[in-house]
């Protein structure tokens, strides 16, 4: 897959990560009423195993919200954080210390699901605006489990065409007023067919 991509294509994907996560950071900021920073997106062409290593290994436990994108651009998207950090996010939202995502509390879990829904939604809306393409977001789903087990769900469509995935990763961090580092990972995994559509729409010469 790597051979077909030139520098400019990766730069375009990086810009998508930038705009998407930027929009999501703004949404998060207004949701929890604090400033939020984001890292420069990383675009990697990786094997499936390498991708899971990025998040700490296949049996590392994370809380994840998973949505599917359909329309002109199809693919999968994850918002992933360590369970303890999911607790911090939801405590800021519902102001309740005793209810936690990591203990499986229903209210906290549904707050986390809604958080993921809003963040992935703003990410995908920015992607849609930037490319002028139609992108619809599926109903969100939440799980707290092994990274490998969850991320595979987003790799199925890709795996019929390739042994590698293009991972657009952005991290939200440095959330104002917190004494500890809080990191949220976005993973956008476009389906193989999506790339030609994205590049064409942005006037980048096709692959």
């Amino acid at each position: 897959m790597e051979g077909y991509f030139e520098r400019i294509h990766l730069d375009v994907l990086k810009e998508i990560g930038n705009i998407g996560a930027g929009n999501a950071a703004t949404a998060l900021s207004s949701l929890i009423n604090r400033t939020v920073q984001m890292t420069v997106p990383v675009v990697n062409i990786v094997s499936f195993d390498e991708m899971m290593m990025e998040v700490g290994g296949k049996d590392e436990v994370q809380a994840a919200v998973f949505v599917q994108a359909t329309g002109d651009i199809s693919g999968s998207m994850f918002f992933m954080v360590p369970p303890k950090e999911a607790d911090l996010f939801t405590q800021m939202m519902i102001g309740e210390q005793s209810k936690t995502v990591s203990s499986g509390d229903e209210l906290a879990t549904s707050a986390f699901l809604e958080l993921g829904n809003i963040l992935t939604g703003s990410y995908l809306r920015a992607l849609s605006d930037f490319t002028n393409l139609d992108v619809n977001q599926s109903v969100p789903h939440v799980a707290i489990d092994m990274v490998g087990a969850m991320l595979t769900q987003g790799l199925l469509e890709i795996s019929v065409a390739s042994d590698q995935a293009i991972m657009i990763e952005t991290i939200l961090h440095d959330i104002d007023g917190l004494d500890r580092e809080l990191k949220g990972h976005f993973f956008l995994l476009p389906n193989p067919d999506a790339y030609a559509t994205i590049f064409e729409s942005l006037g980048v010469k096709p692959l």
């Binding site: 899971m52 290994g57 296949k58 049996d59 489990d145 092994m146 990274v147 490998g148 087990a149 969850m150 595979t152 769900q153 199925l156």
Partner: peptide, 13 residues
Amino acid sequence: HPQTIMTAGLGSC
């Protein structure tokens, strides 16, 4: 043996 063999993070796999 004495090696063991393992795989991590099976979801739908």
